[in-house]
Amino acid sequence: MARIIKKEDYNAKRNEILDIALKLIYSKGYEKMSIQDILDGLQISKGAFYHYFDSKQALLEALVERAGKEAAQSLLPIVKDPNLSALQKFRRYFELSINWKTMQKDLIIKLLSVWYSDENAIIRQKMISATLKQTPGFFEPIIRQGIEEKVFTTFFPEQAAIIITGIALNLADTLTDLWLSPTSDSSRFTKTDMILDAYFDSIERILGAPSGSLKCFGADAFKDWLTEEQSNIKSK
């Protein structure tokens, strides 16, 4: 007779496997991580692992799905808040992003170069693909609200949501490339501010939003941990 596992216990153990898998991905890369690494880390049998995931690919897909759900949980309250205007909702989204990076500063500093290594190219691409599918669904209702409020003039809310999602992803990659490059602090801060100005301006133009209405932070928001990251790179 098969052993019956409570749903809460099942989900807890499944998340435990996902947690250690994510740690291993950051420490050695998805390509180099093996199922045996997970078994050793949790002291579980191969049969126990396969009770939750039938392959390494299934594990990867579960990590991507969980990340998407976590992002949705943070974005949905913003989208549904009846007390926020469309401009406020967009700004709140950007502020949420920078606040998360600030709270996770130490983790980000340690993981940036690892996350962008060749060993994590597959999972990084999976995450990007999932974001490109999911995030426009959160942006579109905000854009439609902005059109109703007459602060956005775009005729293409659905397409604008897709384009802005791509811009946001590209911004993250562009800034990461800059921050990991061996340039002076003053040069990186100047370029970061210029990049942010350009990207926010592009988003405002796509939406037909008032100039300067969406930019809610500049390079100073990253100053502390950018300086620390550059110090870490120079010491390697």
Rank of each mutant, 00 (worst) to 15 (best):
A86M: 09
L59E: 11
K223I: 01
Q104D: 15
W179Y: 10
A168K: 12
L84M: 13
G47Y: 01
G68H: 08
L87P: 10
D106E: 07
N15Q: 14
L178Q: 09
G68Y: 02
I5C: 11
A62N: 07
I147Q: 10
L226Y: 06
I17A: 08
G41T: 01
G47E: 01
E229T: 04
I203T: 05
K223A: 05
R3T: 15
L175Q: 08
I5M: 14
E149Y: 03
A21D: 07
I195S: 06
L76T: 02
L42K: 09
E61Q: 11
I206V: 13
N170Q: 12
D54L: 09
K223R: 13
T176L: 04
A161F: 00
G212C: 08
W179E: 04
R91F: 05
D19R: 15
T154H: 03
K191L: 04
Y10S: 10
I98N: 03
H51R: 13
L63C: 13
A2N: 10
S235A: 07
A198G: 13
N99V: 03
P77F: 06
K23T: 14
G137W: 02
K13H: 12
K236F: 06
A160C: 09
W225M: 04
D224Q: 00
G146Y: 05
A67C: 08
V114S: 14
A219E: 07
F49Q: 10
E61W: 02
